[in-house]
Amino acid sequence: MLFELDADQRAVVESVERILAVHAGPARARELGGDQPRYDRELADLLRGQGFLGFAFEEGAGPLEAALVVESVARAGGVVAAGAEALVLPGVDAGATAPAPVALAVAGSTAPVRFAADAATLVAVGDDEAVLVELGPADVKRIESRFGYPMATVHRWEGRSLGPGSAATVRAWWRVAVAVEVCGAARAALDTTVAHVRERQQFGRALGSFQALQHRLAECEVLIQGARWMALEAAWSGAEVERSAAAAVQALRAGERTFWDTHQFSGALGFAVEYDLHLWTMRLPALRAELLSIGRPASALTTARWSGAS
């Protein structure tokens, strides 16, 4: 057990952060459309070109490194389907030959799907089986949404089956991927808010000196850190069913608390598009809805742990 990055992992994270420092972040997110962004092909190509979205999942390596990349991308506000491409696809289709970008959907759903508008591959999860669908522009319809991701509805569901029982595996990886993304976005939102309340003066003192705010922000910190370690451990475990569900449960709590509290403590400023906070917070409800769409993770955890099924 070791909680610090080893040399290889540090090299991965540092390289990814260098790319993100130039090609992601609030300015880039705004360029792409702010709360209604386009998919960032340029960033995806850069990350993919250096192998950061395609770690081979082998004994003892792969998913954890992929999770660290997904987290960094989410923290930098990158508009790339990193979780689906780097964690879910390799996790469910070893040797992954399906073309990127990748989107994830509940089979047959009429609801908007993150990144479907630009995806070449859709992983569609049914009750028991998951299928890989080749998507073309005619198979999707872009819809308007202000929750930080390009969204589209999907109108094609036939594809290559991943086999009987594959839905459970997809759901587990999907939970890990979104849990990691929630932690990245929540971290950036909390850091932004902490910086704000340290500076902002009201009643002759910094807002952040009021204990009413301090305690709630400290609770957000504990929730985010706990969820983050759980999500990383779940990735490391190869999306073991219980760990994945538990990470998703905790990520939901962390994301929910961070969403409401960071906006509360940022006042009206937090709603302004010229202020950065919304670039991360508005994604949190989207990630939450997506997680809940594949079954409540708390129930999945209980069932997996105590009823012997997923």
Binding site: G226, W229, M230, E233, A245, V249, Q250, R253, W306
Partner: peptide, 21 residues
């Protein structure tokens, strides 16, 4: 009941990871 068991179990796991840290 399922929901509450899952939430409680996840909270104990979060504490476990932070304890390990």
């Amino acid at each position: 009941v399922q929901e509450r068991f899952g939430e409680a179990r996840a909270a104990t796991e979060a504490a476990r990871m932070l304890f390990y840290l």
